[in-house]
Design a protein around this nucleic acid. Sequence first.
DNA 1: TTCGCTCTGTTCGCTTGCGTACATCCAATG
DNA 2: CATTGGATGTACGCAAGCGAACAGAGCGAA
Lengths: 233, 233
Amino acid sequence: MNTLESSNQLINHLDAPARKLILKHSDELLLSTGTVLGQPGDANEYVYFPMNCVIALMLQQNEEKGMEICLVGREGMLGVEAILGVNESPYLILVQNEGSVLRIATEQLMKIIARHPSVEQHLHLYAGVLMQQLAQSSLCSHYHAVQARLARLILMFRDRLHSNTMQLTHGLLADMLGVRRVGVTKAAGALQKRRILRYARGHIEITNEGALEAISCVCYATDKATYDTNLIE
Amino acid sequence: MNTLESSNQLINHLDAPARKLILKHSDELLLSTGTVLGQPGDANEYVYFPMNCVIALMLQQNEEKGMEICLVGREGMLGVEAILGVNESPYLILVQNEGSVLRIATEQLMKIIARHPSVEQHLHLYAGVLMQQLAQSSLCSHYHAVQARLARLILMFRDRLHSNTMQLTHGLLADMLGVRRVGVTKAAGALQKRRILRYARGHIEITNEGALEAISCVCYATDKATYDTNLIE
DNA sequence: TTCGCTCTGTTCGCTTGCGTACATCCAATG
DNA sequence: CATTGGATGTACGCAAGCGAACAGAGCGAA
């Protein structure tokens, strides 16, 4: 990897001096699936920019009730609230797919932000986008059926991994959607019967992307549009 | 009203020079119930600081499916995304309870933010708090029963109005919760039977606050704690 | 006073998802 | 090769909320 480049879209979008500065002050870490990057109440000491891994922010009400609030990959960052000045976050931060991240101390990033308005602007814009996506998720989890939400979630993984295959069990997907494992098995089974997915023992392959997008709820397209409109020029 | 004071908590928290500046550049508007302050796609031209009115951000998927995403009163502001640089918002912005707001041009507020780090810090912190509350709402609308969510919503109105009585019909509450009017009637009826509420034709009175808080979902307390921890010293 | 509109109460069958339990099947490990 | 643990398939009754429809009740306007 060239030190002036990164596989993270947010960082790549910055001008060269700023990007260089961030890379200089950050470490590259390899995270394996299942790693707990943070727990409710942990201080927001670091900010992470995923490169090729996928990280889920899980909000738990108790042992039984919990759900994925935000799925972060190369398109985003982890620690938005930190750069807005919030010290602690309520999330269980789970690495759902192994890969590397750039880690930078929040304090350090704040200094860079203070000196580089372009960095500040872009990251704040990302925060704004995230807020709209959170709002959309609220509506989604309330109204949309498991199958549509499952389709959306799988597509989100695809986008973040740039791959039509992924390692995810029904159980994990159920945890993220906040539904029973059985519910995912049923929905996924229906999709497999229609040859839209193929899966076995934790390995999932999308075999018909178009159909999967058609089945996913609007929220998938809405989120994408929100991101693209604001963050891609 | 003293020109150096405001009934809005965010503004009141600022240091005197900053507060004075904001008040100088803002207009006070009286908004009546039912006013549409903005629609999906509208430019974020102004930022509003409610003083004694309550404003709901509604996200609509279509004519039938929609819900309240955020309820704003004297404790907050309307236009957080704007100060993060987002130009448009997807919300239908509805005045749910008449009262006055301070309105300031986004551009003007941005200038003040640029010159007053304390303002920037406080408003960004509010943005961070809002993100956590949005996450909580996502979990809430997915898991919690109508009655608990109704209790929470009524308590949120109480807090923003500083009053145990309010003007709200079952239909309006249903729209905000994203459920049928009948669902609200049932839940509210049960609460009235237990002498926790009293209501008639759009007028609601809380007659047992403690019980109402006990019935409301955790999200009410969680949101409050998030706000207080971050924004009250 | 009467009409009309809004607000509230109640009912119907229906669908989705829940909680639980158990059966099967595959892969890794010894 | 046999065992074991994780992943998936299927079934059951149950509860919450849905969509639709209609009835009564109160308030304001004519």
